[in-house]
Design a protein around this nucleic acid. Structure first.
Lengths: 356, 356
DNA sequence: TTGTACGCGTTATCAA
DNA sequence: TTGATAACGCGTACAA
C-alpha cells in the first residue's frame, strides 16, 4: 500500500515525508532567486519580460527550471479571468466525422497553449445549452461549435452577449460570427456532374436533416445542379438524422416508388443506410443504383462497394476553426470571417453508368 | 426578436440589455440575502449545508437562483486544490477504437459533475509525459489512461506519487492501480477455437506492438491456444503499430514465406492491413486465407468481406473506468481493482473453412 | 528596473 | 448557527 495524500492541503507541508513534493510556487522561485514575487512573475511572463533586467530574467528562469516550477493556471485564471481553455461542442464523438475535426482543433489550439474541453450534445438543443452553460461556468475563453442548427437561439444569444466563438461544419443563419465549413455546394454540384456524365438522368437525393445547414445547403445545391442539367429536381426524401438507420429508412421510402438510377446521399452515414436499403430490396450497387456519399469519412473507401464520396478536409476544418477562434481571442480580428474549404469528389466503385 | 434564454439561470436577470451582465459573485448573493459570504458559501454547498439554519439556506438559495448565481470553479479550485476535472490520455482520437471509450468516460463522469480533458499522445511517451504534466498543472483530480505501455515509467512514477488514476484497455506490468480491459485471452482463445473448428491448422498471428499489453497478452494467448490444439505456435509476425499500414507490412512479410490458411490479427486495423496485403498478393479472403480482427470497431462489419472480430464493449470499458476512478477519488476504495469485461467472437464473412 | 500592496472568488478555521 | 479573517497563487496598478 502506497502513501496517500494525492493532493495535500498545501499548508504545513513539511510533516509529510515520503509522498509528494509540493509543487513550488512563484514565491518559492522568487525567494530562491532573491527577488520579489512580482519580479519573478514578470520575468516568467512573456508579455512583461521586457520590464525586467535581462540578468534577472536569466536568474529567475534558471531557478524556475531548477525547481521544476510551473505556473498554476488556476491561480492565473482567477486573476486574469481567462482560462486558456476552450469548449468544443460536437454532436457525437462516435460519429466518425468528428474525431478528425476535434484532433485538428486540439492540435492547433494546443500549440498555442490552450486546453480543450469537449462535450457531446447528441443533437439535443437542451443538452447543448446545458453543456454550453457548464463550460461558461468553467470560464472557457471561447467556443468552437460543431452542433449549430440553422436556427439556433443558443448561438444567437451567445453571439449577442459577445461570447467568443466559431462555428465549424454546421452554420447558423444570420449569425455574425466566424465560421468554417466545406464547400458543400460545389461538392454536390461536382457529384451531380459526375452522375450526369455517367449517363444518369433519374437522380434522387437522400437529404440530411433540414434544420442543420449541411442538410439544407446540400439539398439546395442538389436542386440547383439538377436544374442546370435540365433534370427534375424533385426526387428528394429527407432523413430524420445523419445516421445509417435514418438513411436506411429514407431510402426505403424512396424505393417504394420507382427506383432512381442514382442516389446522392446527404452524407456517408446516410449512404451506408442506402446500401442497406438497396440490398434489402434486392438491388445492387452500382449496377442497379449508383450511390454517392459526402465527407469521405475514414475507412469509407473500404465499404462494399467502395463509396464514391466528396472529401471534406475534416482535420483542416478543425485547424482552421481553431485559428479563427485564436484570432477572435487575440482581439486582432474585428469582423467575422467565413471560410469555405475546398472539397473534392473521390470517385470509387459505388458509381457506374446506369443499366441499359 | 424571439424569446431567448434556452437555459436561463432561472431568474430575473431580465435587466441585462445589450452588454454583458458581470456574473454575480458569492458576495453579491450574500449581500442580497443579508448574510455573510461564508454563510452563503455554506448554504450553497452540499456538504456544509447542514451547518446552516434551514430558513437561511432557503433564503440564500432563492437569492442565488434569482441572481443567476453560479459558483466560480476557478476560485473554488484555487481554494480546494481540486478541480472536478479529470484528464484522459488516448493515443489518437481518430483511431475508431477510442471514441466510444471516451464517450463512456464522459457520460459516466459527467453524471457525477466532472469535466473531462482529453489529450492525444500519438503513442509518444514524451508527449504523454508532457500532456500528463500539463493536466496536473491544471489540477485535474485524476487520470484515465488509455496509453499505458507494458513498461511505463510515467505510470509508475505517477502511481508512486499517489496520483489517482485508472488504466483502461492497455495495462502496465506490476502497477498497483485499478484497471479495466477486455478479456483478451479469452477472445483470442475463442478465435483460435473457431478457426480450428473450421478446419484450419496453419494459423498465423499478426501481433500488435509488444510494448503494450494488448499486443503481448494477445500474442501469449495465441501461443497458448495453439499449443492446446497441438498446433505450431510460431507463425507470428509483429507489427510496428496498430495501424492498417503496419498490418499491411507485417502481413506481406508473413506471405513472403508459405501463406497460412488463416490469420489472427492483433486488432481490426491490422486486419484491414492484412486484407490489403492479401489483395496485393492475389489471395482472396476468406477463400484462400481467413482473417479475424479484434475489437469489433464501428463499421467493421461493413468491410469487404465483413470482418470476423472479437467484440470488446468499448463504451462499457469507458464507463467502468470512470466508475473505478470515482471510487478512488471518493476515497472509498482502498485496494486497486482489476476488471476484465467479457468479450464475444462475432463471426462474419472473413472466416471460412480452408481450401481443399 | 524592482518592490509594495491588493484583489480575483472561494472556502477553512476560528471565534462568537 | 453565524461572522470575521485569512489564505489559495498569481498578476498588476502604483510607487519607489
Amino acid at each position: 500500500m502506497t502513501a496517500r495524500t494525492p493532493n495535500p492541503p498545501t499548508g504545513l507541508r513539511a510533516a509529510t515525508l515520503p509522498p509528494v513534493a509540493p509543487r513550488p510556487t512563484l514565491r518559492d522561485v522568487a525567494t530562491a532567486a532573491g527577488v520579489h514575487p512580482a519580479t519573478a512573475s514578470r520575468a516568467l511572463n512573456e508579455a512583461t519580460r521586457s520590464l525586467v533586467r535581462p540578468a534577472t530574467v536569466e536568474r529567475v528562469r534558471e531557478v524556475a527550471t531548477a525547481l521544476g516550477y510551473q505556473v498554476n493556471p488556476i491561480a492565473r485564471s482567477l486573476k486574469t479571468s481567462r482560462s486558456e481553455t476552450v469548449g468544443v461542442l460536437v454532436p457525437d464523438l462516435t460519429n466518425p466525422l468528428f474525431p478528425p475535426i476535434v484532433r485538428g482543433i486540439e492540435d492547433a489550439l494546443g500549440a498555442s497553449g490552450y486546453t480543450v474541453l469537449t462535450a457531446n450534445t447528441d443533437n439535443d438543443p437542451a443538452r447543448a445549452a446545458s453543456n454550453f452553460a457548464a463550460m461558461q461556468a468553467r470560464q472557457v475563453d471561447g467556443f468552437i461549435v460543431a452542433t449549430a442548427r440553422l436556427d439556433d437561439p443558443l448561438m444567437h444569444e451567445a453571439a449577442e452577449r459577445g461570447v467568443p466563438m466559431v462555428l465549424v461544419n454546421r452554420l447558423t443563419e444570420h449569425l455574425d460570427v466566424s465560421a468554417v465549413a466545406g464547400d458543400d455546394a460545389t461538392g454536390i454540384a461536382r457529384t451531380v456532374d459526375h452522375l450526369v456524365g455517367l449517363g444518369h438522368r433519374d437522380i434522387a437525393h437522400v437529404a440530411g436533416p433540414l434544420n442543420v445547414s449541411t442538410g439544407s445547403v446540400r439539398l439546395r445545391a442538389f436542386r440547383t445542379a439538377m436544374q442546370q442539367h435540365g433534370l427534375p429536381d424533385d426526387r428528394v426524401v429527407v432523413a430524420e438524422a445523419y445516421s445509417d438507420a435514418a438513411g436506411h429508412a429514407a431510402t426505403l421510402e424512396l424505393l417504394d416508388g420507382r427506383a432512381p438510377t442514382a442516389i446522392v446521399a446527404g452524407n456517408d452515414l446516410l449512404a451506408i443506410g442506402s446500401y442497406d436499403a438497396l440490398e434489402e430490396r434486392g438491388l445492387s450497387c452500382p449496377e442497379d443504383v449508383s450511390v454517392v456519399g459526402f465527407n469521405d469519412m475514414p475507412f469509407i473507401s473500404r465499404l462494399r462497394p467502395p463509396l464514391t464520396s466528396v472529401r471534406v478536409p475534416q482535420y483542416d476544418l478543425g485547424v482552421e476553426s481553431a485559428r479563427l477562434l485564436l484570432d477572435v481571442l487575440s482581439g486582432r480580428t474585428a469582423t467575422p470571417r467565413m471560410v469555405l474549404l475546398p472539397v473534392q469528389l473521390i470517385v470509387r466503385g459505388s458509381t457506374a453508368p446506369p443499366r441499359g
